[in-house]
Simulated scan of single mutants.
Amino acid sequence: MRIYVNEIKVKDDGIYCYTDKSTEGLKEAGQMLVDSDNYGFAYILDDGQSYSYLIFVKETWSMLHENKGKTIYINDDLKLEEFDQELDYILSNIKGNSNYGKDFVAEVEEAFELE
C-alpha cells in the first residue's frame, strides 16, 4: 500500500506528518527506497505481514531538509526512529549518481543542498 504524506506541521519537538490513509498498526522497517520516476522517497512500514510505503513527495523535501534532526511523527502516533539515518544514507547515494536519472538527482541535490 502506498501512503502519501499530504500535510506537515513543524513544532518545537518534531515534524508532524499526516497521511491520506491510516498508519495504525504499522511500524517502521528502517529502510528507504527512491521513486525517481515520481520524485518521491518511500519509507517502508511493516504490519508484520506486509509492507507499506510512506511516500514523501517532492513538495515535502524542503520541510524535511529545513528541519533536519527533528523527530518525525506520523499521524501523531508513529514515531520514526531511523528516518534521519536512512534519509542521510539515501541522499549520499543519490548525490552525483546518474543511475537515479539526471533530473531527479538535480532536484534532490537542490532541495537538500547537496552540491
Rank of each mutant, 00 (worst) to 15 (best):
D77Q: 09
D13H: 13
K9H: 13
D12S: 01
N99T: 05
D103C: 06
R2H: 01
K9I: 14
V34F: 06
E59S: 15
T23W: 06
F112I: 01
W61V: 03
G69W: 07
D13E: 15
E107Q: 05
Y53G: 11
M32C: 09
K21T: 03
L45K: 15
E82V: 05
N38F: 11
S52I: 02
M1H: 00
N99A: 01
N75V: 07
E109L: 05
I72E: 01
N75W: 01
D88R: 11
D88Y: 07
E86S: 08
G40T: 09
K27H: 11
G69F: 11
Y18M: 05
A42D: 14
D77W: 10
A106C: 00
E66H: 15
L78W: 01
F56R: 05
L87V: 10
K21M: 02
V105R: 02
V5H: 06
L33V: 08
Y89D: 05
Y89R: 12
V57F: 14
S98H: 04
V57E: 02
Y89F: 10
Y100W: 07
H65V: 03
K79E: 12
D13G: 13
I55A: 14
E59H: 10
F83N: 08
E59I: 15
V34P: 04
V105S: 04
R2V: 02
L45C: 15
W61K: 00
K58T: 12
N75S: 06
V10N: 14
G14M: 04
L80P: 09
K70T: 00
V108E: 08
G101L: 04
K9P: 02
N75A: 07
E24L: 12
Y43M: 11
Y53S: 14
Y53N: 14
Q49Y: 15
Y16K: 06
Y100D: 08
E86M: 01
D88F: 08
T23N: 08
G14A: 00
Q85Y: 12
S36E: 12
E81S: 10
L91S: 02
E24C: 03
V10E: 14
L45R: 14
Y39H: 10
C17R: 01
F56A: 13
E109M: 09
D84K: 13
D37S: 13
N97K: 01
G14I: 04
D46V: 11
I74K: 10
Y51F: 13
D88M: 06
T71G: 04
V10D: 11
Q31R: 14
W61A: 11
M32S: 02
F56W: 09
E82Y: 10
L54I: 04
D77T: 14
S62T: 15
Y16I: 06
Q49L: 13
Y4N: 14
S98V: 02
L87S: 02
Y39T: 07
Y16G: 03
E109P: 03
S22F: 01
E110A: 05
D77I: 07
K102I: 13
G30S: 10
D88W: 10
H65K: 15
Y89M: 10
E109T: 06
K9G: 07
K11P: 03
D77C: 08
K79Q: 08
C17M: 04
F56D: 12
R2C: 00
D77N: 10
W61Y: 12
A29K: 15
K95Q: 05
G40V: 11
T60E: 15
G69C: 13
T71H: 02
D37C: 06
E115M: 09
V108S: 09
D20V: 07
N97V: 01
V5R: 05
E110K: 06
D76Q: 06
K68N: 09
I90D: 02
